[in-house]
Nucleic acid binder design. Structure first.
Lengths: 202, 202, 202, 202
DNA sequence: AATGAATGAGAATTCATTCAT
DNA sequence: AATGAATGAATTCTCATTCAT
């Protein structure tokens, strides 16, 4: 969507880009995308505004790059959960939710992006980047469970599940909420998939 | 949160306030809260920026007033759904979803507010205003169905349901999606409540 | 090309617009269009940058408005010169050059605009605005002198004359140059038109 | 005005300087001096901004060097035209205009410099560099035609002619304009010089 | 010598809000 | 009450130039 202005060629540049992304993650999560300013990001990254703009053409591009970074991390994470398709679907879903919750709670800057509403085009891109890794893997798991399922249908189920995940995981606002909410999410997803009559959940 | 600066004393003033709120709803829904400008709202309301600030002390107050307006409308609407508690819970939920979906689709300016992420404090207030009418009534219906339920528990169930509603209804983006998604939402909620083992869903 | 953002509705606003244009004329002539800053213009106009942008959407629009202002003034001036078409062409040309030179010397801020090179699109607009009043009137005078002349031809002659005017009048850099250069311009134009064989210059 | 930072010692350095000047000519002619950026020039020259500044101390110096280059080329060109002073003045002028027009049309990057307005001091330097070769040679030709002429007078005549040239040659914007405009320029100059009564134009 | 990263003052422009008429 | 002019801090982004590698 918004590519970087220039790929850093030297190690120094790559380091700087990473620092900027870290700082931006922090600032975005504290103030939100709109209220965050590129100057504050630069200051937090211990660099000059000019350096920031040497690598990113504008604020959107920074957000975009962050989303890509999280998307990659998330994908790697979920691959571990879904690596063996032998486990029962309900277990896979449970593991998915656990992994996602852990990542969510451990990564504060990821949180606002995860439940960002895709209103603007940047936000649409962010939401896509973060949801599609989950959706794809879930979709695959569903089709493994029921090979006869139409792709369009399993995709729809997967999308519904991801929307529910996105909605409920952010309900965890204090550590003591975690268990209760995680349980609820698992129940909700399993119950929903079960109610479709298309899956064998044991 | 932010009260109106002055209650309009005359019918003319009340009309103007309504016009401003209509215009603001439109502008907020088109551009989002942050990107919307008070000047544009004034222009759309065919009034001057000075007049706007005669009724609202700041931008937040406008959003706040809109949220209140929708909250009241929504409450009235849902009261019709939940007026008789004799219907089976699954029917009440189905009716709730139908009513909410109709309102959502018929009120474009309501949409972004309904799925807005409560990032800032204003937004938190808006989300509260819009969710609590639903949550309260659903909570009541749940307790009617199972009088032995702890209030904290039924409130939790209601909250989960509202979060799911807020997440899934916005998936309707084209008219042809409506039926499929509405069905899914109904399934998801009923299946979830059923899975708790606390309710008699008929 | 770049219209004003809003027509001032109150006398106060009209006054402000004029002050801004005066200040901008000065600044543009001192620093050139590129080096001039909107902030400096605002300061010189004893106003705030916000007020400037209330009336003009950007720097270009200011230049545009100035060009229009000069164009109108120039048109009025030349109408006096060309009002009676009875004078011999050489006299009309002489009067034209005198009037233009007087205006040029009396209006320092007009000078850089008059010999501005139409490189960018704004500058093209400026050059057009300032040249066309001269060109049109000269063209008319030429056709009065020789009614049989093709419009395209007389327009070409007029254009050549205006280009020569634009080039030579700026050669006046000190008061003592004036007479010599004005004489030269008159000679050059009359001699050129004479050499075409199309006009009766006495 | 601004000398080069360091005379390139090696052939490789000289080649690089030339490449930079070529790129700069192009960029200046496309965007104008102000809007052109040194970074873009470096990129177009397939080199780095650091290397560029190894040869030129600043942006002005690049423009300056370009002007010098054109000035030398132009001088060589005109020497061929004016080599034998035996031809009638009108023929020499005609040849001068033909040569200049050819060069102008064949050298796009020269065009904006040739009709640039000497607003800033760099631009004044550029204009001088480009005009003086023409002016000197024309001045000499005029004095050869009329040996009794005061130098100050012949210089003035030459200056007027150069200003007219600078103004009219840029009127050629399409190939089909060329002939007509070249004719007009020749007429204008010859007619002007003739009208002074100081020359024998054959 | 060459590369490209770093710098930061400074430019244009916006917009919530207040004030004068 | 109504209008719209006034304000200026704040924001995004640029670019000539220097510096580290």
């Amino acid at each position: 969507m918004n590519p970087m202005r220039r790929k850093p060629q030297q190690a120094r540049g790559q380091r700087r880009v990473n620092t900027i992304l870290d700082a931006a993650s922090q600032v975005f999560s504290e103030l939100g995308y709109e209220a965050a300013t590129t100057n504050l990001i630069a200051i937090r990254a211990n660099t000059s505004i000019g350096s920031l703009y040497q690598f990113f053409p504008n604020k959107e591009a920074i957000l975009s790059a962050i989303a890509t970074r999280y998307s990659v991390q998330l994908g790697g994470l979920l691959d571990k959960v879904f690596d063996s398709y032998s486990a029962p679907l309900s277990v896979q879903i449970s593991d998915l939710i656990d992994a996602l919750t852990d990542y969510y709670l451990a990564t504060p800057a990821f949180q606002p992006l995860f439940h960002a509403v895709p209103a603007s085009s940047v936000m649409r891109h962010v939401a896509d980047s973060l949801c599609s890794p989950i959706e794809h893997r879930l979709d695959r798991a569903l089709r493994v469970n029921n090979a006869a399922l139409e792709p369009a249908v399993s995709q729809f189920y997967a999308a519904i599940c991801v929307y529910i995940l996105r909605a409920l995981i952010p309900m965890i606002r204090q550590p003591e909420d975690e268990e209760r909410i995680v349980e609820a999410v698992k129940h909700a997803l399993v119950a929903y998939l079960n109610s479709t009559g298309d899956f064998d959940l044991r």
